[in-house]
Simulated scan of single mutants.
Amino acid sequence: MNGSQDEVVSAQLTDKELLKQFKAVEQLDAEDKHLVKTFIDAFLTKRQVQKLAQ
Rank of each mutant, 00 (worst) to 15 (best):
D32K: 14
D41Y: 13
F22P: 07
V49N: 12
T45P: 02
E26L: 08
A42C: 08
T38E: 07
E17G: 13
L19C: 10
D41H: 01
Q21C: 01
V36F: 08
K16H: 04
Q50V: 06
E31I: 11
Q48F: 04
E17P: 06
F43R: 06
K23R: 09
E17C: 01
D29H: 01
A30G: 05
K33T: 11
K20S: 07
A24H: 03
Q48P: 02
I40N: 04
L19T: 02
L35R: 12
T45H: 09
E31C: 09
V36M: 03
R47G: 07
K23F: 11
T45R: 12
V25L: 06
E17L: 04
E31R: 07
D41L: 03
L19K: 03
V49R: 05
V49Y: 09
L35V: 15
E17K: 06
F39M: 15
K33S: 13
D29Y: 04
F22R: 03
A24V: 14
Q27S: 05
K16I: 10
L35P: 03
T38G: 05
D32W: 01
K23T: 15
L28C: 10
H34N: 12
Q48W: 00
V36Q: 01
Q50P: 11
T14H: 09
L44I: 09
V25D: 04
V49K: 11
K37P: 02
A42I: 10
I40G: 00
L44G: 03
D32L: 07
K33H: 08
D29V: 13
L28V: 13
V49A: 01
E26C: 05
K16N: 00
V49M: 08
F39L: 15
Q48G: 04
V49F: 09
R47C: 00
Q21H: 10
F39Y: 11
H34S: 15
K46I: 10
D29M: 00
L28F: 14
H34D: 12
L44D: 12
D15E: 06
Q48R: 11
A30H: 14
D29A: 00
K20Y: 04
H34V: 14
F43V: 13
F43A: 02
D41C: 07
Q50K: 03
L28T: 05
V25K: 05
Q27P: 08
Q48T: 14
V25P: 04
E31H: 13
L28K: 09
V49T: 07
A24Q: 08
R47D: 00
K23M: 01
V25T: 04
L44F: 12
F39V: 15
D15G: 03
T45E: 10
D15H: 00
K37L: 11
K37C: 08
D15F: 09
Q48I: 11
H34L: 15
D32R: 03
Q48S: 06
T14V: 14
E26T: 09
D41N: 12
D29P: 12
K33F: 06
I40A: 03
L19I: 11
V49P: 02
D15Y: 02
D29R: 00
E31F: 12
L35C: 13
